[in-house]
């Protein structure tokens, strides 16, 4: 390679970097960007307000499920593959992470990585039926696969290998220090969101969205649907896996319950509430969900009922989730304040 072409290459990298810098700068000047930054600073400051394990615990749970819901949103919102079996990736990573921590004494981060990678392998596995199935059929198939996982892990016959109905327990928390745990989860959430949003904005994201909008058209544009759908499933499974591993550690273990359709529905509800294909809407949905759940924790049955009503109202009056309308209203008010 000649020196000239090398310097040319360098120049391009530099240009790219400065390009992204100015993009970030511009973004931070938009209303949305500022609000996001304020929210992030707010999240960073929470531990100054309280170091109570319980309050931080709610935030931690909400952050874990933000990642999980975002992983679903990535698959459904960006690629158009509506999975009702997202808990498969969540659960399998929870199991693998727990197994490596508990029986092989690996550090938590290594176990979490392995767990998520096994999740990716399952993403590949579950992605294969998705190649032929569309819409409700894919939803149904993934839900059934999730149930199969649930009953397989629950099955008494497999108890010696899979842990039976009681699963794996005695998993230590990431840290005894609740504040430290909080920040680790915050970093995981922010990083996951950045990566997912970045993929969404990348060229690969454009291809995913083209598959969502018109898969035949995408194929006619020379796109290998098999490859991209599987990649989407794998990326989604990776982040669902991160969430699952964190969930297992936060709850000190796993049992077959992690494969329940319940958790898949949690993800769908949170992402839909926040707004599909927004990624950050998942965080809004998740925080909303868990704060509401804790508020109504004395009446667990009622809380599900109330949440269902809220969801119905949201779907009726804001079918694209609450994130966008809320942002618009806030912006309107803010513009008025500034006298624009």
């Amino acid at each position: 390679m000649s020196a000239k072409s090398l310097s040319k290459g360098k120049g391009r990298v530099k240009k790219k970097l400065s390009g992204s810098k100015s993009y970030l700068l511009n973004w931070s000047k938009t209303f949305r960007g500022r609000l996001t930054i304020i929210c992030l600073i707010g999240l960073c400051l929470i531990p100054l307000l309280t170091q109570n394990r319980y309050y931080l615990g709610i935030f931690i749970t909400a952050m874990i499920f933000s990642i999980f819901a975002a992983s679903w949103d990535f698959l459904a919102g960006f690629t158009g593959q509506v999975s009702f079996g997202q808990a498969i990736f969540f659960g399998i990573s929870g199991y693998i992470t727990s197994y490596f921590i508990r029986y092989l004494y690996l550090p938590w981060w290594a176990s979490l990585l392995i767990g998520s990678l096994v999740g990716v392998a399952f993403g590949l596995l579950i992605g294969i039926p998705a190649l032929r199935l569309k819409g409700p059929y894919l939803g149904l198939a993934t839900m059934v696969l999730g149930l199969i996982m649930f009953y397989t892990f629950l099955n008494v016959k497999f108890e010696p290998w899979l842990g039976g109905s009681e699963g794996i327990s005695k998993i230590p928390q990431i840290s005894r220090n609740a504040v430290e745990t909080y920040y680790i989860h915050l970093i995981f959430m922010i990083t996951s969101f950045l990566i997912l949003i970045w993929i969404g904005k990348s060229k690969m994201g454009t291809v995913f969205k083209s598959i969502r909008d018109d898969d035949i058209g995408a194929e006619a544009s020379g796109i290998n649907l098999t490859k991209y759908k599987l990649i989407a499933f794998m990326i989604s499974a990776f982040f669902a896996g991160i969430a699952g591993g964190l969930f297992a550690m936060h709850n000190r273990g796993v049992n077959p319950g992690v494969f329940q359709p319940l958790y898949s529905f949690y993800a769908i509800v949170m992402a839909s509430l926040g707004g599909i294909a927004t990624i950050s809407g998942s965080a809004l949905g998740s925080y909303f969900f868990w704060f509401a759940a804790e508020l109504f924790s004395e009446w667990p049955d009622v809380s599900v009922f109330i949440f269902a009503i809220i969801l119905i109202l949201v779907i009726r009056f804001a079918e694209h989730g609450i994130l966008k309308p809320v942002l618009e209203r806030l912006k309107d008010i803010w513009d008025l304040v500034l006298g624009k």
Partner: peptide
Amino acid sequence: VNLGVARTFQLVRSFKLLTLLDNISVSCLS
């Protein structure tokens, strides 16, 4: 398509939520 045979459809198809530039970009990413 990747061998060099491209087609259009009788009923127009497009990626509804992508910009026109991105609509074209998808083909450029084949």
